[in-house]
Amino acid sequence: MSTVLIIEQILNGLQFGVMLFLMAAGLTLIFGVMGLINLAHGSLYMVGAFAAAAVAASTGSFLLALAASLAAAAIVGAIIELVVIRRLYDRDHLDQVLATFALILIFSETTRWLFGSFPLFLDVPEALSGTVTLPGGIAYSSYRLMIISVGIIVAVGLFLLISKTRIGMRIRAGENDREMIGALGVDISKLYTLIFALGAALAGLSGALVGAIQSVQVGMGEPVLILAFVVIVIGGIGSIKGALVGAILVGLTDTLGRVMLPLFFANFMEQSSATSVGSSLASMSIYILMAAVLIFKPTGLFGRA
């Protein structure tokens, strides 16, 4: 395997990891602060992707499409928090799972009714449609590099928001002792709505960014949601740093596994069999990684007991 191919796959893994981080960051905020298992988080990813595709088709502007994905996902997230989620905080996790699973069905059928069953396509902006020559003469997609850059900017922004601002102080306090900050006069309801809307906006942005690489279709959020749960289990529930590290580990493990494992098994068996075995093991690799982390660190890499 050439060095160029390895570097390209590492960059692909980083891009995949950044996309997972945008999903997992909102999910870990919601679960860590609010104690809510939100299976509908993948639907908010889908809302952002469809909003971006619809606005891009109408205006031709990719920036407006990204803004629409953030706004649509945040607004929808705030609405479902006010109407549905708020009634689930004091219920057990089974009730939360059932209610948010019902939201998945509602979102899927509503989206199918509004946009139809056929996939939509979001074009990569012309300015980012080419490649960038990296050190060593490696040509890599400008758009994928932009996704990596956006993920880094969001990670830094979330760190500063949570560690350096008054709102971040309230979020951290709410994670540790929600009754106490309520007694000190903080409006818990508004704080929870803000957190849920922020998590939804990050999911929507992730959906919009990936929508230009893949097709935008009903049900696209659920497979990503499963991987986002793997990320927060590996990184530690409630930890933004853990979500970033976990997402990068999952992205690299999955991407490199899908390339290297078939090549490895090709030394021992026919090409078709090697591809089949390697792809199957690559699909399992992220769950093997999660199991290995939990054996040595049951709370995740940066989680607390």
Rank of each mutant, 00 (worst) to 15 (best):
T3D: 15
L5T: 12
I6D: 09
I6F: 11
I6E: 03
I6W: 11
E8K: 14
L11Y: 03
L11T: 07
N12I: 12
Q15D: 11
Q15F: 03
V18H: 08
L22R: 00
M23H: 03
A24K: 01
T28D: 06
L29F: 04
V33F: 05
M34D: 02
M34Q: 06
G35F: 02
L36H: 00
I37W: 06
N38I: 01
L39N: 12
L39P: 08
L39I: 08
L39G: 10
A40Y: 10
H41I: 04
G42F: 09
G42S: 09
S43E: 15
M46L: 13
V47Y: 01
V47K: 01
A49T: 06
A51F: 02
A51E: 03
A52E: 03
A53N: 05
L64M: 13
A65T: 03
A68N: 05
L70F: 05
A72H: 07
A74R: 00
V76E: 06
A78P: 01
I79P: 04
R91W: 03
R91H: 14
D92A: 06
D92K: 02
D92Y: 03
L94G: 08
D95I: 07
V97F: 12
T100M: 11
F101P: 01
F107D: 11
T110Q: 11
T110S: 14
T110C: 15
G116T: 03
S117D: 09
P119C: 09
P119V: 06
P119R: 12
L120K: 14
L122R: 11
D123S: 15
V124F: 08
L128W: 11
S129P: 07
T133S: 13
L134M: 02
I138D: 02
S141Y: 02
S142L: 13
Y143Q: 05
R144G: 10
I147G: 01
I147C: 05
V150C: 06
I152S: 10
I152G: 10
A155S: 03
R166C: 04
R170V: 13
N176P: 10
E179W: 12
E179P: 04
M180A: 15
M180F: 09
G182N: 05
A183L: 15
D187M: 02
D187V: 08
S189K: 14
F196G: 00
G199D: 00
L209W: 04
Q214K: 14
Q217L: 15
V218F: 05
V218H: 08
G219I: 13
M220K: 12
G221K: 04
G221C: 11
L225K: 05
L227P: 00
L227T: 07
F229D: 04
V231S: 02
V233P: 04
I234V: 14
G235N: 07
S239Y: 09
I240G: 04
K241Q: 14
V245K: 07
A247M: 01
I248L: 15
I248P: 00
I248V: 14
L252D: 06
T253A: 10
T255H: 10
L256F: 06
V259Y: 12
L263I: 14
A266S: 14
E270Y: 10
S276A: 15
G278S: 06
S283M: 15
S283G: 15
S283H: 14
S283Y: 15
Y287G: 05
I288G: 01
M290E: 09
T299G: 15
L301I: 10
F302Q: 10
